[in-house]
């Protein structure tokens, strides 16, 4: 028993740890959201919150139901895999509305739109079609690439700048 007598201070230090741990648990129960860990290492309710936010993009299936002609043109050309809204911007306000004519989207300006994807930089894969500043000779891209939905040019114009 006498050997125990001298360990009192050590137990007190250990008690400090236990106390700190209990406080930690208490604070933790208070600050950690209830739904934390429901699906993974995040607040489960974040999904509910996100689902409640307004939609901005309608998705290309939505566009295709009304603009079937353009969808067909696009599907046959080089931009087949580029989404409508990648060029036209978020259009839920137009496509999902009861009256689509209430918000008619403005036509994108090809002078600024096309180079966003096609400007030549070293970082892009070599087989991606890229053009430098001289290519358009100061004209808007659709002067020559007349149909943005199927941008390859007709045979008559081909053999030009490339």
């Amino acid at each position: 028993m006498s050997s125990f007598k001298n360990t009192g201070h050590l137990f007190r230090f250990a008690g400090l740890f236990v106390l700190a741990f209990l406080i930690f648990l208490g604070v933790r129960g208070f600050v950690v959201p209830k739904s934390f860990g429901q699906y993974g290492h995040y607040r489960g309710n974040a999904i509910v919150d996100d689902a409640a936010r307004p939609m901005f993009y309608a998705g290309h299936q939505a566009c295709e139901t009304c603009h079937a002609d353009i969808a067909a043109t696009k599907a046959s050309g080089a931009h087949a895999h580029v989404n409508c809204e990648a060029c036209h911007g978020p259009q839920a306000i137009h496509a999902l509305a009861d009256d689509p004519t209430a918000h008619i989207p403005v036509k994108p300006d090809s002078a600024t739109l096309c180079i966003r994807c096609h400007a030549k930089t070293l970082a892009k894969p070599k087989n991606f079609p890229q053009v430098d500043g001289d290519h358009s000779q100061g004209m808007a891209c659709i002067t020559c690439h007349t149909n943005p939905h199927s941008p390859a040019m007709d045979t008559a114009a081909k053999g030009g700048a490339k």
């Binding site: 050997s3 007598k5 001298n6 360990t7 009192g8 201070h9 050590l10 007190r12 230090f13 400090l16």
Partner: peptide
């Protein structure tokens, strides 16, 4: 800082040294 324990007997300090 003493945590309310004033035991600094020879045995206690020897124990401290070991720990």
């Amino acid at each position: 800082m003493t945590l309310g324990n004033y035991n600094i007997s020879h045995e206690a300090l020897e124990l401290d040294e070991k720990i």
